[in-house]
Design a protein around this nucleic acid. Structure first.
Lengths: 113, 113
DNA sequence: TGAAGCTACCTTGCGGTGCAAGGTACCATG
DNA sequence: CATGGTACCTTGCACCGCAAGGTAGCTTCA
């Protein structure tokens, strides 16, 4: 893997799952759709090999529910919805993220140049 | 480990090493000093078990150099200095980080509330 | 002088998570 | 009925933060 890709990979850790939660909060989604939308964000582009295990994990800890739904064309889709505890986790992340981001900004000196 | 700690742990990934580089850029440091300074930052507090392997890694990839130096009181210290390629890596991270941070802000909806 | 305590360094083994690679099955189209 | 697209999922690996544990030098003070 290239250095640049590896940098993004590390950065993704810990935020990716909450980006997925936020995406589902806005609108119920299915797996392939999530992969596609994240693919549009350079810093968060990822693959099915990441997303499907991640979605299983989020279901297992009770932050997402899912139900099967027919597709207008193609195989059935598993749509995900945010649970109450998922909503709470997302809220907690939002405050944690703001504080984390500010700390990093200060330490690496973003805004000084 | 508590949920809150685990959240920070994941977030640290990929940024911690650059916070260390930035710290060394500002002023040459030794291991214990770095642990202490990071300890003052809630989101980045960590332990020797994280920092020493990390410093070895940064030396191995050539982003840091080190030299031993007597302590005014206590055992000798290994002081780290930033190499040219370390400086370049840090510069690259700074631009990558800004873009990453903005993407996450937008996706999780920071600034909308 | 020698024992207790601090400082500073380092290693081992585990756990979590992103990813490449590979696989199954359903549907549409010609 | 074969081909290709869509959608799901799993296996095994690599990386990195961390808890726990360990070595050794220096200082202090009885």
């Amino acid at each position: 893997m290239s250095d640049a890709a590896q940098l993004s990979t590390s950065l993704r850790r810990g935020t990716l799952e909450f980006c997925v939660l936020a995406m589902v909060e806005r609108e119920d989604c299915y797996g392939t759709e999530i992969v596609r939308r994240l693919g549009a964000e350079r810093s968060l582009a990822t693959t099915e090999g990441t997303i499907y295990p991640l979605l299983s994990r989020l279901r297992r800890v009770g932050w997402l529910n899912s139900e099967w739904s027919e597709s207008p064309s193609g195989p059935p889709r598993r749509y995900y919805t945010l649970t109450d505890s998922g909503r709470a986790a997302l809220a907690h992340f939002r405050t944690e993220w703001v504080s984390f981001r500010q700390t990093v900004d200060r330490l690496v000196g973003i805004g000084e140049q």
